[in-house]
Design a protein around this nucleic acid. Sequence first.
DNA 1: AATGATTAATAGTCAGGCAATATAAATTTG
DNA 2: CAAATTTATATTGCCTGACTATTAATCATT
Lengths: 260, 260
Amino acid sequence: MQEHEDAGEGEVFAEGTYEEAVSTGRLHGTLAHRLAVDILRGVYKPGDILPYQLDSSEALNISRTPYREALKVLSAKGFVESRPKRGTRVCDRTQWNLLDPEVMGWMFETTPTDEFIDGLFELRLINEPAAAELAAERRTAEELDRMRHAMEVMRVETLATETGRLADIDFHKTLLVATKNEVLISLNSSIAAAIAWSTRLKSSDPKDARNSWQDHYRVFEAIEAGNGRAARWSMESLVRFALEDTRRSQKRRQNLPNEG
Amino acid sequence: MQEHEDAGEGEVFAEGTYEEAVSTGRLHGTLAHRLAVDILRGVYKPGDILPYQLDSSEALNISRTPYREALKVLSAKGFVESRPKRGTRVCDRTQWNLLDPEVMGWMFETTPTDEFIDGLFELRLINEPAAAELAAERRTAEELDRMRHAMEVMRVETLATETGRLADIDFHKTLLVATKNEVLISLNSSIAAAIAWSTRLKSSDPKDARNSWQDHYRVFEAIEAGNGRAARWSMESLVRFALEDTRRSQKRRQNLPNEG
DNA sequence: AATGATTAATAGTCAGGCAATATAAATTTG
DNA sequence: CAAATTTATATTGCCTGACTATTAATCATT
């Protein structure tokens, strides 16, 4: 940096534990990430006042500028609220923008609670079948093609590979675009972030993969046929299966607290 | 400020049109707001590169620090993306976090398109009846009391007063808390921001008020009785009526482009 | 005891410079 | 001549240190 008089381990994030995974990003970004995870983990609880900006930034060997920018990011997502003289306070949980795609990602780094997983799938169970129904009524030929292609990739690659997972996401995304409702699209692009994580977690168990593809195929058939009710039903069953899978892998994860 | 050599109208936001409404906030906050509205209005379109930070901040008579912080806020909400050498680019619409409560507020300052309104109500129509059903099954006595109270205030005050509108919001919020699902709560606190705006718009037409209260009462009765299906139905009809009202006032608004 | 002025502590803003990075251009190489 | 590689350059990112504005808490006043 500019002044490495600390001679030795004058590194920036002294005692952090997960630096190597994010080290590529900008400073304020990784900081925001770090603080958010700390808040999600309960290191700072709602109502707590964070250490003052000067102290914090000095303690981290960075300047106030990126530290403040990180706080702005967090405050934009409803995590903290700063005021002169009072300092920066962690907001109540109900203020947190859980649907923000970035926040979703952060949640899944902290072994989310069963309660959160259940809540998330309750949301999916409400929205995705409805979205599938709308998609069946409004889809265009191009969107059908795209979903067909994504599904083919999923069948070949399964969810064990990155390509396969990307195809999965593309399938759901195209389905949503087919609803022609930008609010729904925004909602489910948040959900997609969650799905991405949970499929990554459960992809360690490759025997689910083929079932998952069959579920998708049934949804696709219904949408292709323009059968809204069938699309709704099959999507509902898809989400239910996904919930079961996620619950299983979540249980495994909790039994093995030190995974790699 | 520090250097008013411009002598005369060396004000900070020279040619803005809606300063007085937000002048109380911090600089980076009002700036973020301003830029967001500009983006929503199409002054900057997806793909455009914003003027460089130095130029922009100079043009606004502010320093780079709050300007950059404003950009961080916008980037946290998916509106822009900054990179060295390339500049700050406006993201594609699909990246925007439309469900962010703050963004919702911004949308309603820009006479949202009919398409957006329809999409929003489609989302409400999907989620709120489902939420009502869950609330009917999970509500506690305290939550019932609170909803009862909010409803009473609504009946007396109508939606014409601020107190009445706050009660309306509290009714919906309590209903969501009763679902015991924090993800749903987060979603609908965004929707609440939208409702707040649309009820303010349509509150110019006071004859809707009593109907609206009756709708709420039916929902409440069903939740109190623990009747999930009835709660779903009555909430569905509530939302449908709200959609009609909003459409009407939206139409009025578009016929009178210069409202006060 | 409530209300109003005073103080102190913290976030907010300013200024200008240096560093890192990604794009674009120029150069080398096959 | 095409493709890969280096170099140049423009822009964001970060640093320092000071000053300002705001607000919570204290103290004085009624």
